[in-house]
Nucleic acid binder design. Structure first.
Lengths: 125, 125
DNA sequence: GATTTGTTATAGTATATATAGAACAGATAA
DNA sequence: TTATCTGTTCTATATATACTATAACAAATC
């Protein structure tokens, strides 16, 4: 179930993208599955159609779904090997948070455990 | 040396905060050291005084520096144990990026290696 | 033929980011 | 003491982003 929180300082369209990605990671959404139409999902979530549309296009840019005009959004098969470019992008995103962890006194091992806990949580929910 | 990139979609004040935190992690800035005045640093970096001021207050909110009005910004001693609240905050920040890594085909071990590489880079620079 | 689809366009509001200039009061240095 | 520097506060402007709202279009579907 998807739930958006207007109180967070995380954009609604991004919250939606992340939750759809988590569903894919959990195996709830499989390659070939179709996402609801932008209007239908917007109605369910109580947000504007354009907000859902923005999320879908973000997911398409990440290579997670394929949007077929006049038809729908389909989950793509997971990639086997991560591209160097995407790996660099992830590194840039991880870096400032890793720095924050280090400055708060966490060592490498503790960061590993935090990552492990997060992966468990994602798979649980 | 601090360098801000106007082309990135990362706010200037946040780029500054992150780079100061990296200097602390590297041991270039030690507890008790004083940061340049907001006007002086703004002049060096070619940005507005308020931008530096916002960065300093962000660092103060994170517990990294202490701003003494009319005097300056001083690096605080590193905390020994991370608080539960801050750990939850870090978890929330890590989560969407971990999900992105997983969805791009990375497994736990590969994420570990990425973290290790990032830590090395931060300490090198 | 009617509905649904993603797309495109226009418009409005709110917030965030960054700049600019001015003024204040306290601390520091000459 | 005087002058300078400090962080703070205020007003103002410009731009970008986020979100909503409404409308219309053409193609696919029922």
């Amino acid at each position: 179930m998807i739930s958006l929180n207007h109180a967070l300082d995380i954009p609604l369209y991004r919250q939606l993208s992340t939750q759809i990605m988590e569903s894919v990671v959990r195996g709830e959404l499989l390659a070939g599955d179709t996402l609801p139409s932008v209007r239908a999902l917007a109605g369910d979530l109580g947000v504007n159609m354009h907000t859902v549309n923005k999320s879908y296009h973000e997911l398409e840019a990440k290579g997670i779904i394929e949007i077929v005009p006049k038809k729908g959004a389909v989950i793509k098969a997971k990639e086997q090997k991560i591209s160097t470019k995407r790996l660099e992008g992830l590194s840039d995103e991880f870096r400032p948070i890793v720095v924050e962890a280090l400055i708060n006194g966490m060592n490498q091992e503790e960061i590993y455990m935090l990552i492990t806990n997060i992966i468990s949580k994602v798979r649980e929910d």
